[in-house]
Design a protein around this nucleic acid. Structure first.
Lengths: 227, 227
DNA sequence: CTAATGATTTCCATGATGCTGAAATTCCAG
DNA sequence: CTGGAATTTCAGCATCATGGAAATCATTAG
Protein backbone atom coordinates (compact mmCIF):
# COMPACT_ATOMS: atom_id res chain seq x y z
CA UNK A 1 0.00 0.00 0.00
CA UNK A 2 1.60 3.19 -1.20
CA UNK A 3 1.04 5.83 1.42
CA UNK A 4 0.99 8.94 -0.71
CA UNK A 5 -1.42 7.40 -3.22
CA UNK A 6 -3.80 6.37 -0.50
CA UNK A 7 -3.60 9.84 1.02
CA UNK A 8 -4.11 11.66 -2.26
CA UNK A 9 -7.21 9.69 -3.15
CA UNK A 10 -8.51 10.19 0.34
CA UNK A 11 -8.15 13.94 -0.12
CA UNK A 12 -10.22 13.75 -3.28
CA UNK A 13 -12.96 11.95 -1.40
CA UNK A 14 -12.84 14.49 1.38
CA UNK A 15 -13.27 17.25 -1.18
CA UNK A 16 -16.19 15.38 -2.69
CA UNK A 17 -17.85 14.93 0.68
CA UNK A 18 -17.39 18.61 1.42
CA UNK A 19 -19.49 19.36 -1.63
CA UNK A 20 -16.64 19.91 -4.06
CA UNK A 21 -14.52 22.47 -2.30
CA UNK A 22 -12.81 23.13 1.00
CA UNK A 23 -9.97 25.04 2.64
CA UNK A 24 -6.55 23.58 3.25
CA UNK A 25 -6.95 23.59 7.00
CA UNK A 26 -10.29 21.77 7.00
CA UNK A 27 -8.92 19.21 4.60
CA UNK A 28 -5.77 18.55 6.59
CA UNK A 29 -7.79 18.21 9.79
CA UNK A 30 -10.31 15.85 8.25
CA UNK A 31 -7.54 13.74 6.74
CA UNK A 32 -5.52 13.84 9.96
CA UNK A 33 -2.43 15.00 8.08
CA UNK A 34 -0.11 17.88 8.76
CA UNK A 35 -0.77 21.05 6.80
CA UNK A 36 2.43 20.94 4.71
CA UNK A 37 1.85 17.32 3.75
CA UNK A 38 -1.71 18.07 2.75
CA UNK A 39 -0.50 21.07 0.83
CA UNK A 40 2.04 18.99 -1.01
CA UNK A 41 -0.52 16.35 -1.92
CA UNK A 42 -3.12 18.88 -3.02
CA UNK A 43 -0.65 20.76 -5.16
CA UNK A 44 0.26 17.55 -6.91
CA UNK A 45 -3.43 17.01 -7.62
CA UNK A 46 -3.70 20.59 -8.85
CA UNK A 47 -0.73 20.14 -11.17
CA UNK A 48 -2.42 17.06 -12.60
CA UNK A 49 -5.80 18.75 -13.02
CA UNK A 50 -7.75 16.66 -10.54
CA UNK A 51 -8.11 19.63 -8.25
CA UNK A 52 -8.53 23.26 -9.26
CA UNK A 53 -8.00 26.61 -7.69
CA UNK A 54 -9.82 29.71 -8.78
CA UNK A 55 -8.05 32.98 -8.82
CA UNK A 56 -8.63 35.10 -5.77
CA UNK A 57 -9.78 32.04 -3.89
CA UNK A 58 -7.46 30.01 -1.70
CA UNK A 59 -9.89 27.11 -1.58
CA UNK A 60 -9.33 23.84 -3.33
CA UNK A 61 -12.03 22.66 -5.73
CA UNK A 62 -12.58 19.31 -7.36
CA UNK A 63 -11.45 19.52 -10.96
CA UNK A 64 -13.12 17.70 -13.77
CA UNK A 65 -10.22 15.62 -14.99
CA UNK A 66 -11.52 12.86 -12.77
CA UNK A 67 -14.40 12.60 -15.22
CA UNK A 68 -12.04 11.12 -17.81
CA UNK A 69 -11.81 8.09 -15.60
CA UNK A 70 -15.31 8.11 -14.21
CA UNK A 71 -16.97 8.18 -17.59
CA UNK A 72 -15.61 4.73 -18.28
CA UNK A 73 -15.99 3.36 -14.76
CA UNK A 74 -19.50 4.77 -14.55
CA UNK A 75 -20.63 3.46 -17.89
CA UNK A 76 -20.66 -0.12 -16.78
CA UNK A 77 -22.11 0.51 -13.35
CA UNK A 78 -24.81 2.81 -14.67
CA UNK A 79 -25.73 0.57 -17.55
CA UNK A 80 -26.08 -2.41 -15.24
CA UNK A 81 -28.26 -0.42 -12.86
CA UNK A 82 -30.41 0.87 -15.64
CA UNK A 83 -30.88 -2.47 -17.38
CA UNK A 84 -31.37 -4.59 -14.28
CA UNK A 85 -35.19 -4.28 -14.49
CA UNK A 86 -35.16 -5.23 -18.17
CA UNK A 87 -33.01 -8.25 -17.41
CA UNK A 88 -35.44 -9.24 -14.67
CA UNK A 89 -38.38 -8.96 -17.07
CA UNK A 90 -36.52 -11.18 -19.48
CA UNK A 91 -35.95 -13.70 -16.74
CA UNK A 92 -39.60 -13.58 -15.66
CA UNK A 93 -40.68 -14.23 -19.23
CA UNK A 94 -38.34 -17.16 -19.85
CA UNK A 95 -37.41 -18.63 -16.46
CA UNK A 96 -34.06 -19.40 -18.05
CA UNK A 97 -30.64 -17.96 -17.29
CA UNK A 98 -30.36 -14.45 -18.80
CA UNK A 99 -27.26 -12.37 -19.52
CA UNK A 100 -26.35 -8.77 -20.12
CA UNK A 101 -23.04 -8.22 -21.90
CA UNK A 102 -21.08 -5.25 -23.24
CA UNK A 103 -18.05 -5.03 -25.51
CA UNK A 104 -14.72 -4.50 -23.76
CA UNK A 105 -11.73 -4.18 -26.03
CA UNK A 106 -11.90 -7.09 -28.43
CA UNK A 107 -13.89 -9.29 -26.11
CA UNK A 108 -17.31 -9.19 -24.59
CA UNK A 109 -17.79 -8.75 -20.91
CA UNK A 110 -20.71 -10.22 -18.98
CA UNK A 111 -21.98 -7.28 -16.97
CA UNK A 112 -24.90 -8.96 -15.28
CA UNK A 113 -26.84 -12.22 -15.22
CA UNK A 114 -29.75 -13.89 -13.51
CA UNK A 115 -29.48 -17.63 -13.08
CA UNK A 116 -32.42 -19.91 -13.79
CA UNK A 117 -33.85 -21.81 -10.85
CA UNK A 118 -34.69 -24.86 -12.93
CA UNK A 119 -33.09 -28.15 -11.96
CA UNK A 120 -31.01 -28.25 -15.13
CA UNK A 121 -29.81 -24.80 -16.10
CA UNK A 122 -26.94 -22.80 -17.54
CA UNK A 123 -24.67 -21.21 -14.95
CA UNK A 124 -24.60 -17.42 -14.73
CA UNK A 125 -21.18 -15.96 -15.35
CA UNK A 126 -21.18 -12.25 -14.54
CA UNK A 127 -17.69 -10.78 -14.74
CA UNK A 128 -16.58 -13.36 -17.27
CA UNK A 129 -15.04 -12.41 -20.56
CA UNK A 130 -15.12 -14.30 -23.85
CA UNK A 131 -13.96 -13.67 -27.39
CA UNK A 132 -16.28 -11.99 -29.86
CA UNK A 133 -16.78 -15.07 -31.97
CA UNK A 134 -17.33 -17.38 -29.02
CA UNK A 135 -20.89 -16.43 -28.12
CA UNK A 136 -24.18 -15.34 -29.62
CA UNK A 137 -23.89 -11.91 -28.00
CA UNK A 138 -20.40 -11.46 -29.42
CA UNK A 139 -21.65 -12.22 -32.91
CA UNK A 140 -24.32 -9.60 -32.40
CA UNK A 141 -21.65 -7.00 -31.74
CA UNK A 142 -19.71 -8.13 -34.79
CA UNK A 143 -22.80 -7.86 -36.95
CA UNK A 144 -23.52 -4.35 -35.70
CA UNK A 145 -20.04 -2.84 -35.65
CA UNK A 146 -18.00 -2.71 -38.85
CA UNK A 147 -14.78 -1.46 -37.25
CA UNK A 148 -14.94 -4.19 -34.65
CA UNK A 149 -15.51 -6.72 -37.43
CA UNK A 150 -12.48 -5.37 -39.30
CA UNK A 151 -10.08 -5.95 -36.42
CA UNK A 152 -11.47 -9.34 -35.44
CA UNK A 153 -10.40 -12.60 -36.96
CA UNK A 154 -13.79 -13.89 -38.09
CA UNK A 155 -13.83 -17.56 -39.14
CA UNK A 156 -15.38 -18.06 -42.60
CA UNK A 157 -18.16 -20.22 -41.19
CA UNK A 158 -19.41 -17.32 -39.11
CA UNK A 159 -19.15 -14.68 -41.83
CA UNK A 160 -22.43 -15.68 -43.47
CA UNK A 161 -24.10 -15.95 -40.13
CA UNK A 162 -23.30 -12.30 -39.44
CA UNK A 163 -25.32 -11.31 -42.50
CA UNK A 164 -28.27 -13.29 -41.22
CA UNK A 165 -27.93 -11.68 -37.79
CA UNK A 166 -27.90 -8.22 -39.31
CA UNK A 167 -31.02 -9.09 -41.30
CA UNK A 168 -33.03 -10.80 -38.55
CA UNK A 169 -31.84 -8.72 -35.61
CA UNK A 170 -30.88 -11.64 -33.37
CA UNK A 171 -28.06 -14.15 -32.93
CA UNK A 172 -28.33 -17.76 -31.88
CA UNK A 173 -26.12 -20.58 -30.75
CA UNK A 174 -27.20 -24.20 -30.70
CA UNK A 175 -24.59 -26.36 -29.09
CA UNK A 176 -21.89 -24.85 -31.31
CA UNK A 177 -19.77 -23.33 -28.57
CA UNK A 178 -20.71 -25.42 -25.58
CA UNK A 179 -22.16 -28.90 -25.74
CA UNK A 180 -25.76 -29.05 -24.69
CA UNK A 181 -26.30 -25.30 -24.48
CA UNK A 182 -28.43 -23.14 -26.75
CA UNK A 183 -28.71 -19.38 -26.63
CA UNK A 184 -30.53 -16.49 -28.27
CA UNK A 185 -29.23 -12.93 -28.12
CA UNK A 186 -30.71 -9.59 -29.11
CA UNK A 187 -29.11 -6.15 -29.10
CA UNK A 188 -29.90 -2.99 -27.19
CA UNK A 189 -29.51 -0.22 -29.72
CA UNK A 190 -29.47 3.44 -28.74
CA UNK A 191 -28.67 6.36 -31.01
CA UNK A 192 -27.88 3.90 -33.76
CA UNK A 193 -25.21 2.22 -31.66
CA UNK A 194 -25.31 -1.21 -30.07
CA UNK A 195 -24.66 -0.54 -26.39
CA UNK A 196 -25.24 -3.98 -24.96
CA UNK A 197 -26.58 -7.41 -25.74
CA UNK A 198 -29.17 -9.48 -23.89
CA UNK A 199 -28.91 -13.24 -24.00
CA UNK A 200 -31.06 -16.17 -22.90
CA UNK A 201 -29.30 -19.52 -22.49
CA UNK A 202 -30.84 -22.89 -21.78
CA UNK A 203 -30.24 -26.62 -22.29
CA UNK A 204 -30.35 -27.44 -26.00
CA UNK A 205 -33.19 -29.89 -25.62
CA UNK A 206 -35.43 -27.27 -23.98
CA UNK A 207 -34.43 -24.41 -26.29
CA UNK A 208 -34.65 -26.04 -29.70
CA UNK A 209 -33.92 -24.17 -32.96
CA UNK A 210 -37.62 -24.03 -33.91
CA UNK A 211 -38.19 -21.84 -30.82
CA UNK A 212 -35.51 -19.30 -31.73
CA UNK A 213 -37.60 -16.91 -33.86
CA UNK A 214 -40.48 -16.60 -31.40
CA UNK A 215 -38.13 -16.23 -28.42
CA UNK A 216 -36.17 -13.53 -30.26
CA UNK A 217 -39.39 -11.70 -31.04
CA UNK A 218 -40.45 -11.87 -27.40
CA UNK A 219 -37.05 -10.56 -26.30
CA UNK A 220 -37.23 -7.67 -28.75
CA UNK A 221 -40.65 -6.83 -27.38
CA UNK A 222 -39.49 -6.81 -23.75
CA UNK A 223 -36.47 -4.66 -24.52
CA UNK A 224 -38.48 -2.22 -26.57
CA UNK A 225 -40.95 -1.89 -23.71
CA UNK A 226 -38.56 -1.65 -20.77
CA UNK A 227 -35.15 -0.42 -21.86
CA UNK B 1 4.77 16.86 -7.61
CA UNK B 2 4.54 13.56 -5.80
CA UNK B 3 5.73 10.86 -8.13
CA UNK B 4 3.68 7.92 -6.96
CA UNK B 5 0.46 9.96 -6.93
CA UNK B 6 1.04 11.14 -10.45
CA UNK B 7 1.79 7.61 -11.56
CA UNK B 8 -1.22 6.07 -9.85
CA UNK B 9 -3.64 8.52 -11.43
CA UNK B 10 -1.98 7.98 -14.77
CA UNK B 11 -2.63 4.26 -14.42
CA UNK B 12 -6.30 4.94 -13.80
CA UNK B 13 -6.47 6.99 -16.97
CA UNK B 14 -4.70 4.28 -18.93
CA UNK B 15 -7.26 1.78 -17.69
CA UNK B 16 -10.05 4.12 -18.70
CA UNK B 17 -8.61 4.61 -22.18
CA UNK B 18 -8.27 0.85 -22.57
CA UNK B 19 -12.02 0.59 -22.09
CA UNK B 20 -11.99 -0.20 -18.39
CA UNK B 21 -9.66 -3.15 -18.17
CA UNK B 22 -6.18 -4.25 -19.18
CA UNK B 23 -3.39 -6.63 -18.32
CA UNK B 24 -0.45 -5.71 -16.11
CA UNK B 25 2.04 -5.89 -18.94
CA UNK B 26 0.12 -3.63 -21.28
CA UNK B 27 -0.40 -1.14 -18.50
CA UNK B 28 3.24 -1.06 -17.47
CA UNK B 29 4.31 -0.63 -21.09
CA UNK B 30 1.84 2.16 -21.76
CA UNK B 31 2.85 3.92 -18.57
CA UNK B 32 6.55 3.37 -19.23
CA UNK B 33 7.05 1.91 -15.78
CA UNK B 34 8.68 -1.32 -14.71
CA UNK B 35 6.35 -4.22 -14.12
CA UNK B 36 6.91 -4.48 -10.34
CA UNK B 37 6.35 -0.76 -9.89
CA UNK B 38 3.14 -0.92 -11.87
CA UNK B 39 2.13 -3.94 -9.88
CA UNK B 40 2.73 -2.13 -6.63
CA UNK B 41 0.73 0.91 -7.75
CA UNK B 42 -2.14 -1.17 -9.08
CA UNK B 43 -2.36 -3.25 -5.93
CA UNK B 44 -2.60 -0.10 -3.88
CA UNK B 45 -5.48 1.01 -6.08
CA UNK B 46 -7.07 -2.41 -5.69
CA UNK B 47 -6.75 -2.24 -1.91
CA UNK B 48 -8.49 1.13 -2.00
CA UNK B 49 -11.27 -0.03 -4.30
CA UNK B 50 -10.45 2.16 -7.29
CA UNK B 51 -9.41 -0.88 -9.29
CA UNK B 52 -10.95 -4.32 -9.13
CA UNK B 53 -9.91 -7.82 -10.00
CA UNK B 54 -12.35 -10.55 -10.76
CA UNK B 55 -11.63 -14.05 -9.64
CA UNK B 56 -10.07 -16.22 -12.24
CA UNK B 57 -9.01 -13.16 -14.17
CA UNK B 58 -5.58 -11.64 -13.86
CA UNK B 59 -6.70 -8.42 -15.55
CA UNK B 60 -7.17 -5.17 -13.74
CA UNK B 61 -10.58 -3.47 -14.05
CA UNK B 62 -11.64 0.03 -13.16
CA UNK B 63 -13.60 -0.12 -9.93
CA UNK B 64 -16.51 2.11 -9.17
CA UNK B 65 -15.20 3.83 -6.08
CA UNK B 66 -14.03 6.62 -8.35
CA UNK B 67 -17.70 7.43 -8.80
CA UNK B 68 -17.85 8.71 -5.21
CA UNK B 69 -15.64 11.54 -6.33
CA UNK B 70 -16.92 11.94 -9.85
CA UNK B 71 -20.51 12.30 -8.81
CA UNK B 72 -19.62 15.57 -7.11
CA UNK B 73 -17.11 16.77 -9.70
CA UNK B 74 -19.52 15.94 -12.47
CA UNK B 75 -22.51 17.61 -10.86
CA UNK B 76 -21.24 21.10 -11.38
CA UNK B 77 -19.91 20.56 -14.88
CA UNK B 78 -23.03 18.77 -16.02
CA UNK B 79 -25.40 21.25 -14.47
CA UNK B 80 -23.59 24.16 -16.10
CA UNK B 81 -23.70 22.44 -19.48
CA UNK B 82 -27.32 21.61 -19.15
CA UNK B 83 -28.42 25.04 -17.99
CA UNK B 84 -26.25 27.07 -20.35
CA UNK B 85 -29.06 27.35 -22.93
CA UNK B 86 -31.53 28.47 -20.29
CA UNK B 87 -29.09 31.09 -19.06
CA UNK B 88 -28.68 32.31 -22.62
CA UNK B 89 -32.45 32.60 -23.05
CA UNK B 90 -32.56 34.60 -19.86
CA UNK B 91 -29.86 36.88 -21.18
CA UNK B 92 -31.62 37.28 -24.52
CA UNK B 93 -34.83 38.25 -22.76
CA UNK B 94 -33.25 40.80 -20.44
CA UNK B 95 -29.99 41.97 -22.04
CA UNK B 96 -28.70 42.28 -18.49
CA UNK B 97 -26.01 40.30 -16.70
CA UNK B 98 -27.38 36.89 -15.72
CA UNK B 99 -26.08 34.37 -13.19
CA UNK B 100 -26.37 30.72 -12.39
CA UNK B 101 -25.45 29.75 -8.84
CA UNK B 102 -25.48 26.58 -6.75
CA UNK B 103 -25.02 26.00 -3.01
CA UNK B 104 -21.58 24.89 -1.93
CA UNK B 105 -21.20 24.20 1.74
CA UNK B 106 -22.59 27.23 3.54
CA UNK B 107 -22.01 29.61 0.67
CA UNK B 108 -23.29 29.96 -2.82
CA UNK B 109 -21.07 29.43 -5.77
CA UNK B 110 -21.48 31.24 -9.09
CA UNK B 111 -21.34 28.44 -11.59
CA UNK B 112 -21.90 30.46 -14.72
CA UNK B 113 -22.72 33.96 -15.90
CA UNK B 114 -23.27 35.98 -19.04
CA UNK B 115 -22.27 39.61 -18.85
CA UNK B 116 -24.48 42.33 -20.29
CA UNK B 117 -23.09 44.29 -23.19
CA UNK B 118 -24.72 47.53 -22.08
CA UNK B 119 -22.45 50.49 -21.37
CA UNK B 120 -23.29 50.42 -17.67
CA UNK B 121 -23.63 46.89 -16.41
CA UNK B 122 -22.96 44.53 -13.54
CA UNK B 123 -19.78 42.50 -13.86
CA UNK B 124 -20.11 38.75 -14.27
CA UNK B 125 -18.43 36.78 -11.51
CA UNK B 126 -18.35 33.10 -12.38
CA UNK B 127 -16.32 31.11 -9.86
CA UNK B 128 -16.99 33.62 -7.12
CA UNK B 129 -18.39 32.60 -3.81
CA UNK B 130 -20.52 34.62 -1.40
CA UNK B 131 -22.33 33.98 1.86
CA UNK B 132 -25.92 32.82 1.81
CA UNK B 133 -27.33 36.03 3.19
CA UNK B 134 -25.29 38.25 0.89
CA UNK B 135 -27.25 37.82 -2.32
CA UNK B 136 -30.72 37.32 -3.70
CA UNK B 137 -29.86 33.81 -4.89
CA UNK B 138 -28.50 32.89 -1.47
CA UNK B 139 -31.74 34.02 0.15
CA UNK B 140 -33.59 31.81 -2.28
CA UNK B 141 -31.65 28.79 -1.05
CA UNK B 142 -32.32 29.75 2.55
CA UNK B 143 -36.03 30.07 1.86
CA UNK B 144 -36.13 26.65 0.21
CA UNK B 145 -33.92 24.63 2.52
CA UNK B 146 -34.79 24.33 6.21
CA UNK B 147 -31.62 22.52 7.25
CA UNK B 148 -29.49 25.13 5.52
CA UNK B 149 -31.49 27.84 7.28
CA UNK B 150 -30.93 26.13 10.62
CA UNK B 151 -27.16 26.20 10.35
CA UNK B 152 -26.92 29.71 8.92
CA UNK B 153 -26.80 32.83 11.00
CA UNK B 154 -29.76 34.67 9.49
CA UNK B 155 -30.00 38.37 10.47
CA UNK B 156 -33.46 39.28 11.87
CA UNK B 157 -34.06 41.75 9.04
CA UNK B 158 -33.86 38.97 6.49
CA UNK B 159 -35.97 36.47 8.38
CA UNK B 160 -39.27 38.07 7.30
CA UNK B 161 -38.01 38.41 3.78
CA UNK B 162 -37.51 34.65 3.60
CA UNK B 163 -41.21 34.15 4.23
CA UNK B 164 -42.05 36.49 1.39
CA UNK B 165 -39.61 34.67 -0.91
CA UNK B 166 -41.16 31.31 -0.06
CA UNK B 167 -44.59 32.77 -0.80
CA UNK B 168 -43.79 34.64 -4.03
CA UNK B 169 -41.17 32.27 -5.43
CA UNK B 170 -38.51 34.87 -6.08
CA UNK B 171 -35.91 36.89 -4.22
CA UNK B 172 -34.83 40.47 -4.85
CA UNK B 173 -32.12 42.84 -3.88
CA UNK B 174 -32.32 46.54 -4.42
CA UNK B 175 -29.06 48.19 -3.52
CA UNK B 176 -28.99 46.41 -0.17
CA UNK B 177 -25.79 44.44 -0.70
CA UNK B 178 -24.03 46.53 -3.31
CA UNK B 179 -24.66 50.20 -3.96
CA UNK B 180 -26.38 50.83 -7.21
CA UNK B 181 -27.11 47.21 -8.02
CA UNK B 182 -30.50 45.54 -8.12
CA UNK B 183 -31.13 41.86 -8.68
CA UNK B 184 -33.96 39.37 -9.04
CA UNK B 185 -33.46 35.65 -8.51
CA UNK B 186 -35.66 32.61 -9.11
CA UNK B 187 -35.06 28.97 -8.25
CA UNK B 188 -34.68 25.89 -10.38
CA UNK B 189 -36.59 23.21 -8.53
CA UNK B 190 -36.38 19.56 -9.46
CA UNK B 191 -37.84 16.64 -7.53
CA UNK B 192 -38.90 19.10 -4.85
CA UNK B 193 -35.34 20.25 -4.33
CA UNK B 194 -33.81 23.57 -5.25
CA UNK B 195 -30.83 22.64 -7.40
CA UNK B 196 -29.73 26.06 -8.57
CA UNK B 197 -30.72 29.69 -8.71
CA UNK B 198 -30.89 32.02 -11.67
CA UNK B 199 -30.26 35.71 -11.14
CA UNK B 200 -30.56 38.88 -13.21
CA UNK B 201 -28.57 41.88 -12.00
CA UNK B 202 -28.66 45.43 -13.32
CA UNK B 203 -28.07 49.01 -12.25
CA UNK B 204 -30.66 50.02 -9.67
CA UNK B 205 -32.01 52.85 -11.76
CA UNK B 206 -32.76 50.53 -14.69
CA UNK B 207 -34.12 47.67 -12.59
CA UNK B 208 -36.45 49.47 -10.22
CA UNK B 209 -38.53 47.68 -7.57
CA UNK B 210 -41.76 48.16 -9.52
CA UNK B 211 -40.29 45.95 -12.28
CA UNK B 212 -39.44 43.07 -9.94
CA UNK B 213 -42.73 41.13 -10.11
CA UNK B 214 -43.00 41.16 -13.88
CA UNK B 215 -39.32 40.27 -14.36
CA UNK B 216 -39.65 37.40 -11.88
CA UNK B 217 -42.69 36.14 -13.77
CA UNK B 218 -40.81 36.28 -17.05
CA UNK B 219 -37.87 34.42 -15.51
CA UNK B 220 -40.15 31.71 -14.14
CA UNK B 221 -41.62 31.35 -17.59
CA UNK B 222 -38.25 30.97 -19.32
CA UNK B 223 -37.02 28.42 -16.79
CA UNK B 224 -40.22 26.41 -16.98
CA UNK B 225 -39.94 26.34 -20.76
CA UNK B 226 -36.24 25.57 -21.13
CA UNK B 227 -34.82 23.92 -18.03
C1' DC C 1 -5.66 52.53 6.42
C1' DT C 2 -3.03 49.76 9.85
C1' DA C 3 -2.17 46.20 12.82
C1' DA C 4 -2.83 41.77 14.31
C1' DT C 5 -4.18 37.22 13.59
C1' DG C 6 -4.58 33.28 11.20
C1' DA C 7 -3.95 30.67 7.03
C1' DT C 8 -0.98 29.35 3.30
C1' DT C 9 3.33 28.55 1.13
C1' DT C 10 8.25 27.68 1.02
C1' DC C 11 12.33 25.38 2.55
C1' DC C 12 15.21 21.78 4.09
C1' DA C 13 17.11 17.93 6.87
C1' DT C 14 15.84 13.40 7.83
C1' DG C 15 14.59 8.83 7.55
C1' DA C 16 10.87 6.31 6.07
C1' DT C 17 9.18 4.91 1.71
C1' DG C 18 8.64 3.40 -2.72
C1' DC C 19 11.56 1.76 -6.64
C1' DT C 20 13.96 -1.71 -9.11
C1' DG C 21 16.46 -5.97 -10.44
C1' DA C 22 16.31 -10.67 -9.59
C1' DA C 23 14.10 -14.75 -8.20
C1' DA C 24 9.97 -17.50 -7.24
C1' DT C 25 5.58 -18.59 -8.47
C1' DT C 26 1.50 -18.89 -11.04
C1' DC C 27 -1.02 -18.94 -15.24
C1' DC C 28 -2.14 -20.55 -19.73
C1' DA C 29 -1.66 -22.40 -24.32
C1' DG C 30 -0.42 -26.23 -26.87
C1' DC D 1 1.47 -32.60 -18.96
C1' DT D 2 5.05 -29.32 -20.42
C1' DG D 3 7.22 -24.96 -21.62
C1' DG D 4 7.11 -20.23 -21.95
C1' DA D 5 5.18 -16.08 -20.51
C1' DA D 6 3.03 -13.30 -17.25
C1' DT D 7 2.48 -12.23 -12.47
C1' DT D 8 3.90 -11.92 -7.78
C1' DT D 9 7.24 -11.73 -4.08
C1' DC D 10 11.37 -10.08 -2.02
C1' DA D 11 15.11 -7.23 -0.18
C1' DG D 12 18.67 -3.64 -0.59
C1' DC D 13 19.28 0.97 -1.85
C1' DA D 14 18.58 5.52 -3.41
C1' DT D 15 15.07 8.47 -3.56
C1' DC D 16 11.34 10.65 -2.35
C1' DA D 17 7.80 12.23 0.60
C1' DT D 18 7.29 14.00 5.16
C1' DG D 19 6.70 17.50 8.67
C1' DG D 20 9.03 21.09 11.68
C1' DA D 21 10.14 25.78 11.28
C1' DA D 22 10.04 30.08 9.19
C1' DA D 23 8.40 33.34 5.70
C1' DT D 24 4.75 35.06 3.18
C1' DC D 25 0.20 36.06 2.28
C1' DA D 26 -4.79 36.88 3.16
C1' DT D 27 -8.34 38.39 6.21
C1' DT D 28 -10.45 40.72 9.85
C1' DA D 29 -10.92 44.01 13.46
C1' DG D 30 -10.03 48.32 15.01
Amino acid sequence: MIQSVSRALHLLEILARAGGSARLKEISETAALTVPTTHNLLNTLVALGYVRRRQGDTRYHLGDRILNIARVAGNDAQLRERLRPTLKKLYDATQETVFLAVPSGDEIYFLDAIESRKLLHVAAQPGERVGMTGSAIGQLFLAHNASLRARTDVPPGIRDELDRIARDGYAVDHERVFDGIAAVAVPLIEDGEMLAGFGVAAPGNRLTPDLFPSLAARMHQIIADHA
